[in-house]
């Protein structure tokens, strides 16, 4: 495993820890899109179907379990925890996320590496992950008040896939890995969707001002 891949995974883990910290310590999910969190549950559930059938490494298995358990528990907190769920911005989080699931699934049926259940679902998870942040970005844009934990959560989440891009370049060059267009293009789209957010995040950080996205 190269340094970009490890840094990417750690950033991903960090983003989830930041979100859990917000939920646990502030007992709040204000500014967090339940729609995006539900999409991540679907992403991990369809990608990690091989968890009990294919063993890569201890690291790999543990990380998969962590991503599955944390994504499920975040959704549980937002829907059912008696304090946390009252802080959910239901009226602002109106993105129709089902409209992302269907086209991603159709695309995975059409464009995949091999037409098997496992390969199509894995491909679907990559396409869906690329766009899963959209409800969250829309909610951020509607929020007048973005707290630091929410801003950092989205920043780390975006940085994770950006680091994976470097990992793929490294693997292609150094390890002579095969061409992997599906994850590469999905990852590129995923990172590009954050460009606008990154711009305002870094700008506010430099000026030491509170993060606010233009409507």
């Amino acid at each position: 495993m190269n340094v970009f891949r490890l840094a990417g995974d750690m950033t991903h883990l960090l983003s989830i820890m930041v979100l859990l910290l917000k939920i646990h310590s502030m007992k709040s999910c204000a500014g967090i899109s339940l729609k995006t969190q539900e999409l991540y549950v679907l992403v991990f559930a369809t990608r990690y179907l091989d968890i009990f059938t294919t063993y890569f490494s201890f690291y790999n298995t543990v990380m998969k379990i962590v991503f599955l358990v944390t994504s499920f528990s975040i959704v549980w907190y937002m829907r059912h925890h008696k304090v946390v769920r009252q802080t959910y911005d239901r009226d602002q989080d109106t993105f129709r996320h089902h409209l992302l699931v269907i086209p991603c699934f159709l695309l995975a049926l059409l464009i995949n590496h091999r037409f098997t259940v496992r390969e199509v679902l894995w491909t679907f998870s990559l396409y869906l992950e690329a766009v899963a942040i959209l409800p969250q970005l829309v909610l951020l844009q509607r929020s007048r008040n973005i707290d630091n934990l929410t801003g950092n959560y989205v920043f780390f989440l975006g940085a994770y896939r950006g680091l994976y891009l470097f990992n793929w370049i490294y693997r292609y060059m150094a390890e002579k890995s095969q061409l992997r267009w599906i994850p590469w293009i999905s990852g590129l789209v995923q990172t590009a969707l954050y460009a606008d957010f990154f711009y305002y995040y870094i700008k506010s950080w430099k000026k030491r001002e509170k993060l606010q996205l233009p409507a």
Binding site: D9, T54, F56, F67, H113, R114, T116, R180, I182
Partner: peptide, 10 residues
């Protein structure tokens, strides 16, 4: 048919 894509990433 093509081989499965490697899935050693997260």
């Amino acid at each position: 048919s093509a081989a499965e894509q490697p899935k050693d990433e997260l």
